[in-house]
Design a protein around this nucleic acid. Structure first.
Lengths: 191, 191
DNA sequence: GTCTATATCGAGATAGAC
DNA sequence: GTCTATCTCGATATAGAC
């Protein structure tokens, strides 16, 4: 096992620089509010150089979504290997909270932006991924409105609370601890 | 007291048509993703006609925010008249949930869009309004991280959960009931 | 992989007639 | 209050040289 995580083989090093810059800009201005020029400026090259890496702006959005969601994929795979539904749910919840807090600024762009939502909703791999996430979070529970609302609130709360004005100036440790405590409580998990 | 709510005197009837159309479009495409032309088409007039009502696009965004937040202002004023902090909090929570669910599609645009967030954060009346809302929701509780996170989660959850994929096809009554139950529970209020 | 240069389109915005 | 016509700029995108 390598000491550091291997780079995502789906994209080259130069592409990753573009993706990282785009992620920052999407988080700050939204997808529609971010132009090719802004991305090129942030990377420090011209628009044409970016177009050499990605044929369209949609391709960049897709790449940002893929790279942004890949830690979630890993966490889900790890969780699904747990023996019981309870253990699966518990591990996934912990990982998701950790990931979300560590990458607060980006999570917002990924789950809140209308362009991103449309893309994620029309791209099967993303739909399947989220379906699996919700399945694990639901666990053995029934599929009634109460349980569905509970999952929705927990998912939404994690994504939206971490960028809330009341929370932006809190350090990651505190946010992670408090968020985990509240979500565990919503799941009726022991403290 | 009139049988129907009086129209907001801040804007004319034609302006209200524009604001309503813009609200729909902002909710669907985001502020940056909505052009003047799209608004004009939705209203059924030309761009120039819209420019006669609002000097800039920012003015429309501001108007949408003002009209969108005015029910919240009313609810807050009503809540602040309650005798005890507990009663204030309880009434505001109930009203906010009702409002949010009734206007689900728009709440998302108001609280999630980067342009809107920037506007709301730089416009004193909005900052003051939200400060008052948080003050009532905090109630007599301390200002520690646990309580701040709790308010952030509840606020975020209300805004984000109502548009969550798991919830979009649920009827308003169910969403309101379940959301109220969960948020009341987070506040340690009796069922 | 990056550049300059250019094409094309739609954006926000204004002028002036009706 | 709405229209047609127009301006200017920045957006996505492409061609072809280095």
């Amino acid at each position: 096992m390598p000491a550091i995580a291997p780079p995502d083989p789906r994209y080259s090093e130069t592409q990753r620089r573009t993706i990282d810059a785009a992620m920052d800009l999407f988080a700050e201005h939204g997808v529609s509010g971010t132009s090719f020029q802004m991305i090129a400026d942030a990377v420090g090259v011209t628009k044409a150089a970016i177009y050499h890496q990605f044929k369209t702006k949609d391709a960049i959005v897709l790449a940002v979504a893929e790279v942004g969601l890949s830690p979630l994929e890993d966490a889900l795979a790890e969780a699904e290997q747990q023996p019981t539904p309870e253990a699966q749910r518990e591990l996934l919840l912990t990982r998701v909270v950790e990931l979300a807090v560590a990458r607060r600024r980006w999570v917002n762009a990924l789950q809140g932006d209308p362009v991103m939502i449309r893309l994620l909703g029309s791209h099967d791999p993303f739909v399947d991924l989220m379906a699996r996430v919700y399945m694990v979070l639901m666990g053995i529970a029934d599929d009634g409105p109460t349980e569905r609302m509970r999952i929705a609130i927990i998912s939404a709360a994690i994504g939206a609370a971490i960028v809330h004005p009341l929370v932006v100036d809190m350090d990651d440790d505190t946010v992670r601890t408090e968020l985990l405590a509240v979500t565990r409580r919503l799941f009726d998990l022991p403290d």
